[in-house]
């Protein structure tokens, strides 16, 4: 079996220093704004992205990596390792993107060279990233694939994410709204708390008008779920650090927080949720 190597995609929104520290390979998705196409997080910084979409009339569109791109990455990892490796490739919810599809095809292509276990995280943004980082740590410490996968499955079950989007326009236009679609008839400006369902679709966890009520609802949900258990917190924000900090303070202050990571929502997820969106992810620490 040998060592475990971790691959994910750019929608995991993992801060660059953590990518490096835990030896995570990130495959970029692509973002098209107007006539230009960029590789998420490679030749387009999040800062540049949010500037661009502000000045562009059109909404950005995104596309998954090709199977070939995954294949290249998988082969390179296998070749660079002297010993036998297993790749755990953890990705954006298959309900939201074809990334899983590409990775799965690629894994099939390379199966003679390397074993790739492709996992649908059924999540998005740092709700993937926080778990990927945890598994990468385990792998670095020498855990085998069985141990990694066990931990992965537990974390996938027990990690919750809540998004506060500034407008539903982006989700709607990109068709990523899933079960939240019922909201669109409304003429009233409703800012729901969105979450991801067990099958990886976006759904409105809580609907109300007004941010205070939304924050209170998230706080209540995480308190009920995690109580006094130690947790890791991930805050991600689409060009809205202050808002992210407010989210952290207002929703998690009574939890037993072991660590907090604040990260930016990259161009791809940013294209789907829109600027000024924020999300909080809570993952059990033990």
């Amino acid at each position: 079996m040998g060592r475990v190597k971790i691959v994910t995609d750019s929608t995991a929104d993992i801060p660059k220093d953590l990518v490096k520290k835990y030896d995570i390979t990130v495959v970029p998705l692509k973002v098209a704004i107007g006539n230009e196409t960029f590789q998420d997080g490679v030749n387009l910084t999040t800062e540049a992205f949010y500037q661009k979409i502000e000045s562009s009339e059109e909404l950005p569109s995104t596309s998954q990596p090709t199977p070939y791109e995954f294949e290249t990455v998988y082969r390179r990892i296998a070749e660079n390792e002297a010993d036998e490796v297993t790749i755990l490739s953890i990705h954006l919810s298959s309900q939201l993107s074809g990334t899983m599809q590409s990775a799965t095809l690629a894994a099939e292509e390379v199966k003679d060279a390397v074993h790739v276990d492709v996992v649908d995280s059924k999540r998005a943004s740092y709700a993937i990233g926080i778990i990927v980082v945890e598994i990468a740590k385990l792998a670095q410490d020498g855990a085998d694939v069985k141990a990694c996968k066990e931990r992965l499955n537990t974390l996938l079950e027990e990690t919750k994410v809540y998004f506060l989007v500034n407008t539903l326009e982006y989700l709607q236009k990109n068709g990523r709204i899933g079960k939240a679609s019922a909201l669109f008839g409304t003429l009233l400006k409703v800012k729901p708390v969105l979450s991801l369902s067990e099958d990886g679709q976006v759904y409105p966890y809580f609907k109300a008008r007004g941010r205070k009520k939304a924050l209170a609802a998230i706080r209540e949900a995480v308190n009920e779920q995690y109580g006094s258990k130690p947790v890791h917190i991930g805050i991600c924000h689409a060009n809205a650090l202050e808002s992210g900090e407010e989210l952290l303070e207002k929703t998690t202050s009574s939890l037993q927080v072991e660590s907090t990571t604040i990260t930016e929502i990259g161009a791809v997820i940013g294209s789907h949720v829109g600027p000024e969106s924020v999300a909080v992810t809570v993952m059990p620490a033990k």
């Binding site: 079960k179 409304t186 009233l188 409703v190 369902s197 759904y203 409105p204 809580f206 609907k207 109300a208």
Partner: peptide
């Protein structure tokens, strides 16, 4: 009435 309906959740 509007607030009550907004709070409704089909799931």
């Amino acid at each position: 009435g509007l607030s009550a309906m907004i709070a409704f959740h089909d799931q």
